[in-house]
Structure formats: structure tokens, C-alpha cells
Amino acid sequence: MTTQNLAELGITESILDHPKLVYTDASGKKHKPLGVSINETVFGVFPGTALERGWITYMNIGEPLIEERSSLAQPPPDTLSARVYVNRDTTAPRKFEDTVEFSISNTFSWSVQGTLQLTLGAKESASLQKMIQTQHTVRQSYKESGTDTAYTVQEQATGQAELSGELMLALTGSVSGSLTTSWTSRSTVSGDLVANSRVETRATQRRVAKNYSYEIPIAFAGHFAVNYPVKASTLTPPQDYIAEGVAVVARNIADIELVRDSKFRQRGAAESVSALAVEHTVFERELLTADEQQLHKKPKQG
């Protein structure tokens, strides 16, 4: 637990006035601490630090509990390309070729919300989604001269979303992050276009969205040090029992009741949006028929 975490938790010089840290001697007289040290941080007057004595306070970040939202309406397909190729030659065939470039992607984003938010640090991370799996299907449907061919490709991408944003104390807000895996690809359809005909091509891409809610359990544990103006009785390990007492005493971090008996859950929401499938289609060939129109005015005779 860092100095920044202590500030986020509201632990300042006022900890010297914490009622749970007041020592009552055998005569009933009460003594407030002269100083307190938590890890490397010192409040008031303290000889050295708690860390130098081997007394450490820490946060333990548990495994996220993830729940996927059901009955989520999916977005409609996106039209990437719609083209028409026309051969107006009345005798000779022509070739056509239709190429579409597109991206396959998976974006996983998350936001942390709550009234108590802590900086978890770059190395202390929570795996919100252990594996981000992206499957995409590229389908070509080609109908020309009575043929119909198709192929399917599937790939996987994995990633781990790290929860390492700076989160502030007593602020109801959200800190967002995202992880994207993506790659580009190309699809080409081609064929012969007979005389006096046309053909239409279309490429569409499908997106799939998923929503999650999650909770990250965080617990505080360990010991800190309190410096009294008198010799106080030792209360707990890791300090050895000394009958006559000592001025610097080890105390359990739970004694100052940080958050809900030293435990709370960080809540948030997450979403994944995947561009999964591209369908590149060539529709049936259409013949162009000549339409002889009557003249509006007939030419004069003679």
C-alpha cells in the first residue's frame, strides 16, 4: 500500500487522533500517539519507519467476479461496399473484379465506478477477461455461370486487460481503458460479364456486442507502527511480547477500520465489440434489354 493509497483512503496526520490508537495505561490515563508509520510513510514523530522494522501493510486484489448481460440487442450489419458493373457492349464479353479491404477487430473496454477508488498500480493488475477470443468468418458467395463457391476462415486473438488507471478517493466517476486486437484483410471477387449485361456486388460486416458487470474484491492486511510517549504493552505479533512494554508498538491495520472491516469490492462495467464477419456477395447476372421508345412526334411525310 503506497503513500498515494493512504491519501486516497483519507489517512493523514489526523490518524494521530484516531480513538482506536489511544493507549490507556494501568492507572487509567490515556495517551495519544506521538507518531504513526505505515510502510514508508510517517505521520508525526517516529523513529525510522515501519518498513525498516519489517512491519508491512498491503492491499490484496482478488480475482474479478464477472457476469455477462443476457438478451442484448445486437447492432445491424454494416454495408462496406455496394457496386454495380455494367457491360454495354452488344457483342463482346468483359471481365470484372471487385476488391474490398476491411478490418477484423475486437475491442474490450472497461470502466471502474464507485465512491471509493484506489490506485492499484501498473504491476498490480486484475484480469477482467483472461482470454479475448475473436472469431471471424469471411464468406465469398459467387454465382456466375451456375457456380457457387464459399470459404470460411477463423482466427483467435488473446489479451489481458489491466486495471491500472489512477482512481481518486471520494469521487463518483469512472476511469476507462480499452484493449483492441485487430488486423486487416482483403476480399476479391471477379468473373466474366457477358455482352449487354450487368452484375451487382455487395460486402457487409457483422458486429457482435457483449456487456459485462464485474466486482473486484480488495482486502487490506498487515501491520503498522505506533509511537507512544510512554511504554505501552505489546498487543499483537509480529512484535514479541515484552512485559515492561515498549514505546513503539505494532498494530494490525484492521484496528483503524479502513473500509468495511478492511474489505470492499470495486465495481465496474465492461463491454466487448467485435467486428466478426464479412460477406462478399456477387448477385445473379442481369441482362440489359433494349427498349425501343416511340417518337413523340412522327416525321413529316413527303
Score class of each variant (00 low, 15 high):
6 L>Q: 00
12 T>G: 06
15 I>Q: 00
15 I>F: 00
17 D>K: 09
18 H>K: 01
21 L>G: 02
28 G>D: 04
28 G>P: 02
29 K>S: 10
32 K>F: 02
34 L>R: 11
34 L>P: 08
34 L>F: 06
37 S>T: 01
39 N>D: 04
45 V>W: 06
45 V>C: 09
46 F>A: 01
52 E>I: 06
53 R>P: 03
66 I>H: 05
76 P>K: 08
77 P>H: 00
80 L>A: 00
81 S>T: 06
88 R>T: 15
93 P>D: 13
106 N>C: 11
109 S>H: 03
122 A>K: 06
124 E>S: 11
129 Q>K: 10
130 K>N: 09
130 K>F: 04
134 T>W: 05
138 V>R: 15
139 R>S: 15
140 Q>C: 14
141 S>F: 11
150 A>F: 14
158 T>P: 03
159 G>W: 02
164 S>Q: 06
165 G>D: 09
169 L>D: 15
173 G>P: 04
178 S>V: 07
179 L>Q: 14
181 T>Y: 06
204 T>D: 08
209 A>Q: 10
212 Y>H: 04
213 S>W: 15
218 I>R: 01
220 F>N: 04
221 A>R: 07
222 G>M: 00
225 A>E: 03
228 Y>P: 01
229 P>T: 03
236 T>V: 12
243 A>K: 11
248 V>F: 02
249 V>I: 09
250 A>N: 01
255 D>N: 03
259 V>W: 08
260 R>E: 15
262 S>L: 10
266 Q>L: 15
271 E>T: 14
272 S>W: 02
277 A>V: 12
277 A>K: 09
277 A>I: 09
279 E>P: 05
281 T>N: 12
285 R>P: 04
293 Q>S: 11
294 Q>K: 04
294 Q>R: 09
297 K>W: 10
300 K>T: 07
